[in-house]
Design a protein around this nucleic acid. Structure first.
Lengths: 151, 151
DNA sequence: CTTGAAAAGAACTGCCT
DNA sequence: AGGCAGTTCTTTTCAAG
C-alpha cells in the first residue's frame, strides 16, 4: 500500500472523472509543471493504483433504456452449483456485472434490457432458468450518480 | 438511436475494455486502416454512444479492502425527504454510487471501507443516521466480474 | 522541481478507388 | 464505404539549470 500526499489524491480524483486529461493540463490545474505531474502519475501507475482505462457507454443511446439490479438467492449452493451458476450467468448477454456477495442474497447481477417487456423476457427465460436459483429480487434503477469516493 | 454494424460493435467492446487503444491499433486488429477506424469512432462519439473516459482504481491498493452494497428503505418518503436523503448521502465520502431504485428498497448505495471494523463505523455513524432511513440491508462483495455486456 | 526542446505517436484532412 | 499519403497536434521523454 502506497502513501499519498494531497496532490496525489487530487490527481487520482481528476483522472477518475476524466482520464482524457494530459499530465500538462492536470499540472496547470494544480500549479505543477508537466514533467513533475507526469512523474507522479507514473509513480501511481507503477504502484498499481490504476486499473483499466475504460470508456463509459451511454446505454440509452444504444437502445437499452432499462437497468435492473437483481439479488439472487440460490436454492442449493454447494461448490459445484456456485461454479455452474456463474458459468451460466456469464453466458447471458444482458448481464453486465456479476457480484458474489455475502448477506441475504448470494449474487447481485446488473442487467440491462431495451425496455420493460424486454426485461421480462430476460428475467423469465434467462434468469429464472439459471441452475440453482431460489429467490430473485429486482430493483429497477431510476437514476444513478457516481460520487468522487473516499479519496 | 444509431444503428451499428458488426465492426462498430467490436470497436465499442474493445474501447470499453481498454480506452487506451489508438485508432491505428484498433484498425490493425480488425483489418481496417487508421483513418477508416478513426472515422467510425468519430461517428460513434458524435452519436453520443460514449460517455466519460474513466480510469478504474484498484481500491485494494489504496487500502480499501471492503466493498458493500446497501439497500436502503426510507421510513418516510415525501418529495422533500428524497432530496434531503440524497444530499446527506452525497456528503458521505465512503459512498461511491447512489442509485435511486424501484422495488423493495428506495436506494442502493455502493460503499467502500478499509476493513470490516471501519465499515461498521460508516454504517453506524453515517448510514444509520441519514434522514429518513428505515430498513437497511447489506451485501458484502466477495468478488465482482464485469462482463462484455449486450453488444 | 523547473524550463525548453526533441522525439514519438496519435489525431485529423484531402484525394483517390 | 475504405485506403493512401500527408500535415498538425499532443504527449511523452530527455537534457540541463
Amino acid at each position: 500500500m502506497i502513501d499519498l500526499d494531497d496532490i496525489d489524491r487530487q490527481l487520482i480524483r481528476a483522472l477518475c472523472e476524466d482520464a482524457t486529461q494530459s499530465a500538462g493540463a492536470l499540472g496547470r490545474a494544480f500549479g505543477l509543471s508537466q514533467p513533475a505531474t507526469w512523474r507522479r502519475i507514473k509513480r501511481l501507475r507503477e504502484a498499481g493504483v490504476f486499473g483499466a482505462r475504460r470508456v463509459d457507454l451511454d446505454l440509452e443511446a444504444l437502445g437499452f433504456g432499462v437497468t435492473v439490479f437483481l439479488g439472487v438467492k440460490l436454492a442449493t449452493k454447494g461448490r459445484v452449483s456456485l461454479d455452474d451458476f456463474e458459468r451460466a450467468v456469464r453466458a447471458i448477454p444482458e448481464v453486465q456485472t456479476v457480484q458474489h456477495v455475502l448477506g441475504l442474497f448470494d449474487y447481485r447481477l446488473r442487467v440491462v434490457a431495451q425496455d420493460l417487456p424486454d426485461f421480462e423476457r430476460v428475467l423469465r427465460r434467462r434468469i429464472m432458468t439459471l441452475p440453482g436459483v431460489g429467490n430473485v429480487e429486482a430493483n429497477v434503477v431510476l437514476s444513478e450518480e457516481t460520487l468522487p469516493g473516499p479519496l
